[in-house]
Structure formats: structure tokens, C-alpha cells
């Protein structure tokens, strides 16, 4: 049956992980640095975008999402969409008085 497919076939080298880590540290430094600059309303947007990029790196590289079955990625997208839906609908109440 599918017994052979159960072990993760890939086994990425250590190097790629260290590269990802360097990217994450750089992004952290970036977000801390730009926090001092006032973008007004956009500073939160900038901070969140950087956080999303970092999460994407952790998800796809550290958590091996890019190697998993497609279904796993669909799951993650479903959960994120569900959360966004809740936020959008919730703000129908708070932002339109």
C-alpha cells in the first residue's frame, strides 16, 4: 500500500535552515528599525506584512509545508481564510457606525 510514502523523502541540508534563520533575524532587525519611523496609519501594516513574511518562511521551510501533500496547504489556507472572514464580518459592526 502506501507504506513507502510515510517517511518524508526529502532531507534538506543544514545550510538552507541557517539561511532561513538569517533571513528571519534580518527581518526582525528591519521591523524593529522601521518601528521608529512613523508611517502613521501604515506602520501597523508594515509591521504585519513583515510578520507575515516571517511566518511564511517558518511555515514553508521549518515546518516543511512545501514538501507536504497539497491537502496540508489547503488546510492552512482554509484556516487563515476562516480567520480573515471572522475579522471582516466582525468589523462590519465596529467600523460602520
Amino acid at each position: 500500500m502506501e507504506e513507502n510514502k510515510t517517511l518524508t523523502k526529502h532531507s534538506p541540508g543544514y545550510g538552507i535552515y541557517i539561511l532561513v534563520w538569517l533571513a528571519l533575524v534580518t527581518l526582525t532587525a528591519l521591523t524593529a528599525a522601521v518601528a521608529g519611523i512613523s508611517f502613521g496609519k501604515f506602520s501597523i501594516v508594515v509591521a504585519l506584512i513583515i510578520a507575515m513574511v516571517k511566518s511564511y518562511l517558518v511555515l514553508s521551510e521549518f515546518m516543511h509545508l512545501k514538501f507536504e501533500m497539497k491537502a496540508f496547504r489547503v488546510f492552512v489556507v482554509v484556516a487563515i481564510l476562516f480567520f480573515l472572514l471572522l475579522i471582516v464580518l466582525l468589523f462590519q459592526n465596529y467600523s460602520y457606525y
Partner: peptide, 10 residues
């Protein structure tokens, strides 16, 4: 006492 918008959508 929801906003009008929320009441309509929901």
C-alpha cells in the same frame, strides 16, 4: 444595537 451595516449583512 449593531451597526446598520452589520445588521443588513448578517
Amino acid at each position: 444595537g449593531l451597526s446598520n451595516n452589520a445588521e443588513f449583512i448578517f
